[in-house]
Design a protein around this nucleic acid. Structure first.
Length: 442
RNA sequence: GGAGAGGUGGCGGAGUCCGGUUGAACGUGCCUGACUCGAAAUCAGGUGAAGGCGCAAGCCUUCCGUGGGUUCGAAUCCCACCCUCUCCGCCA
């Protein structure tokens, strides 16, 4: 069903760098050390050199075009046959010369494009240095519950209450697919409605977005590298990908748009299905609902002025915490280390919920993620705003955060609220959406 | 899926048959100034984006759905593609 669709055309790509090429030379050392700390190998000097070549060719092309325009203007008046002939010959010469420079410019741009595509965003100075295990715990909220019986993990709970069918998921669609059944269906929808009501109250405009998006939009959002380790399913014989998150389709809304400063910040909430190949994660927490190929999610996406994005990042995180507090689930907030940031993220905070069935004696597991991507995605999207004071257009900052990722959230809900008789107490905040106070026992 | 119409600046809308002083008439919206105690109305001027050079003022280039082609020169001619709208059919 997935598979590449032969889109590796060699035509000149749209020039959409992730960083402003004009800062390449100025911040050369900073970029190089940032790449190094992120564990990305990039030839910054080659990129600087390529940018210089682009500039030189661009200037040459401008000059040549001007000469050509002047020549054309002079050809508008009446000319004798001999004059006309000479004029046409000179025009031909100029035309050839322009074509030659255009070719060189295209080559230089392709080279610059190629080199810049590998350069990730800058990182926040406070982000911990290191990799996946080097996160910093910002705070821990709520006490993990002490059970007076042996708690089950969500797999056992789901089986006992007949809530999830993994075997049929594997039979019909493959490993890491699943069917939700019975009250799990209600729980899925209740979680979405619950999260949606909270974010709507916080000023987010709700959307149900397409689940597929054009490849160029997916690339602009830089959701994952488009290589062998891609997280993205592509639809054969089309230019479409299945989205990994509504962040992609919500961001795409603003491609090539210039919004008025007075409209900012723009808060969007997208409900969508999310599809992930989970390439390279075989055997990693592969049991149950933690890592699956498809799930439903309510995602927050915000566009701000550059000076407002840091505060907005905190705001998004606070909403995520509010959602988990309402679900009565203990959690901790972590500041992701630089080496574990995706290419577009400048800084990332995750909420890890307490999952009693995880590991030997329970453990925290990621349930949400909030990223400030600064102008990285906006530059590729060409998403800008007009600043009232200067009347100039500037790149927006984009942020995204999980309101609720259903399957990941189902785990702590089931595991934390189980009782000794095998039933599940529905958190008060969720009851109005469920129409139930309890699942089971049975 | 069949038939037709069309894609031009913030918006509306000329120009395309007969290629050249058209970055683009005209209207409208918006900004500035004049008038006014203010406002409206009226008058005058201004008002797109991207990129290059420059300390700056500024100068220059590119862009009329997208990509090619013809030509000394294309919004205007040719080819392909994309999208939108209307009608018919089909369908959750």
């Amino acid at each position: 069903m997935s598979g590449w669709t032969g889109c590796e055309s060699t035509a000149v790509l749209p020039f959409r760098p992730m960083l402003d090429p004009r800062v390449l030379a100025d911040r050369r050392d900073e970029i190089a050390s940032n790449c190094q700390r992120r564990g990305v190998t990039v030839d910054v000097d080659a990129a600087v050199a390529a940018h210089e070549r682009v500039t030189v060719q661009q200037t040459a092309l401008n000059d040549q075009n001007r000469a050509r325009n002047e020549h054309q203007k002079s050809g508008r008046k009446q000319l004798s046959p001999e004059e006309r002939e000479a004029h046409v010959a000179e025009g031909r010469r100029l035309k050839e010369s322009v074509g030659e420079i255009e070719g060189q410019l295209a080559d230089a741009q392709a080279e610059l494009n190629r080199l810049m595509a590998a350069i990730p965003n800058f990182a926040h100075p406070d982000s911990p240095v290191g990799g996946e295990k080097d996160f910093r715990v910002l705070r821990t909220v709520g006490e993990p519950r002490r059970f007076d019986f042996a708690p089950l993990d969500h797999l056992a709970i789901a089986e006992r209450l007949d809530l999830v069918d993994f075997e049929s998921g594997a039979k019909v669609s493959g490993p890491k697919f699943y069917y939700l059944k019975n009250e799990a269906v209600l729980l899925d929808m209740a979680l979405q409605r619950y999260a949606l009501d909270i974010v709507t109250a916080e000023g987010f405009t709700p959307f149900i977005t397409p689940d597929l998006a054009r490849r160029d939009i997916v690339d602009a959002m830089a959701f994952s590298p488009r290589d062998a380790a891609t997280q993205i399913y592509s639809v054969a014989d089309s230019e479409l990908d299945l989205i990994g998150t509504a962040e992609i389709t919500l961001g795409g809304l603003y491609q090539d748009e210039i919004v008025d400063e007075s409209e900012l910040p723009i808060r969007l909430a997208g409900v969508s299905h999310c599809y992930r190949t989970e390439a390279g994660s075989a055997g990693r927490e592969s049991k149950g609902l933690y890592r699956v190929h498809q799930f439903s999610k309510v995602e927050m996406f915000v566009l701000t002025r550059p000076e407002d994005s840091a505060a907005m990042h905190d705001e998004i995180l606070a909403i995520e915490e509010k959602i988990f507090q309402g679900l009565e689930i203990p959690y901790r907030v972590i500041d992701i280390a630089i080496g574990d940031l995706g290419a577009p993220a400048y800084r990332k905070f995750d909420i890890e919920a307490w999952m009693p069935g995880r590991g030997e004696n329970g453990d925290y597991g990621e349930v949400t993620s909030a990223s400030n991507c600064t102008d990285f995605q906006a530059r590729r999207l060409r998403a800008r705003f007009r600043r009232a004071e200067t009347r100039k257009n500037e790149l927006l900052h984009t942020l995204n955060g999980t309101a609720v990722a259903v399957t990941r959230t189902l785990i702590p809900v089931l595991e934390n609220h189980q009782d000794s008789d095998g039933s599940i107490a529905i958190p008060k905040a969720l009851q109005p959406y469920m129409g139930l106070e309890r699942i089971g026992p049975r």
